[in-house]
């Protein structure tokens, strides 16, 4: 499992009709196993863009990635990012079919049917979803779908997880369940980056709080100083 992954000088602008709109400029961020970073920022500052770049889903104009040895250009590290980083959309996408099928898709294709079934059952239990195993995943509530997505991530054993507004539009009970699962992932040494407007709710979970403003990341003031992780 990757203990630390460092992204440096991430720069991204989007081409407009007449000029380019700058979103990120020389952003540096390091993710550590078992540590949670909270990312906040106003709407339109590029939080989702940054998360998608870190996940290997969106090509930056420039940026390097270091998995612990040497700096690699993002383009060359992309495959490794896709393999190691899991990105959870604000409204997770549910594939056609049952919750079990959605889980099974996260199991590596090399596993036997029996192994897959066992792993899926474990994930259903972990995500408190056993009684929904056969339900159509697309008909679940937002909170339940978020738990399916987290259970898929747990199944995949991604060393790094990026969550985009994981508890948006969720009731208190669902948020509490999601946070409980995130605590378990953190204890399993997963590096977690959460992008959210609601930072108080993640207080018990978060080790570092950064804010994206004026194209760059800065340390936010809300987090306990003794709990910070090195950058």
């Amino acid at each position: 499992m990757t203990e630390k992954i460092t992204f440096s000088r991430i720069t991204k602008s989007f081409a407009g009709s007449f000029s380019a709109t700058k979103l990120l400029s020389d952003v540096d961020i390091a993710l550590h196993g078992g540590k949670v970073i909270l990312l906040t920022g106003e709407n339109g500052t590029g939080k989702t863009t940054l998360l998608r770049i870190l996940a290997g889903l969106l090509k930056p104009d420039f940026g390097t990635v270091n998995f612990g040895a040497t700096d690699e250009h993002w383009k060359h590290a992309r495959k490794r990012l896709l393999k190691n980083v899991m990105y959870l959309h604000q409204r997770p996408y549910m594939f056609e079919g049952s919750v079990s099928r959605n889980m099974a898709l996260a199991v590596p294709g090399s596993m036997s049917r029996k192994q897959t079934r066992e792993r899926v059952n474990q994930a259903l239990e972990w995500g408190m979803l056993t009684r929904h195993a056969l339900a159509n995943a697309k008909t679940l509530s937002g909170g339940q779908q978020q738990r399916v997505a987290l259970a898929r991530a747990w199944l995949r054993q991604s060393p790094i997880m990026l969550l985009d507004e994981p508890i948006a539009n969720m009731d208190t009970q669902s948020s509490a369940r999601t946070i409980k699962l995130l605590h378990q992932l953190k204890h399993a040494n997963t590096a977690i980056l959460i992008c959210s407007h609601n930072y108080q709710i993640f207080d018990s979970l978060v080790d570092r709080h950064v804010e994206l403003a004026n194209y760059q990341l800065t340390e936010a003031q809300s987090i306990k100083a003794d709990n910070r992780v090195p950058r």
């Binding site: 996940a55 990105y87 898709l105």
Partner: peptide, 12 residues
């Protein structure tokens, strides 16, 4: 999001 989800699940 379907494609991104599939890719981020590590599916080849």
């Amino acid at each position: 999001h379907a494609w991104e989800t599939a890719r981020t699940l590590g599916i080849p």
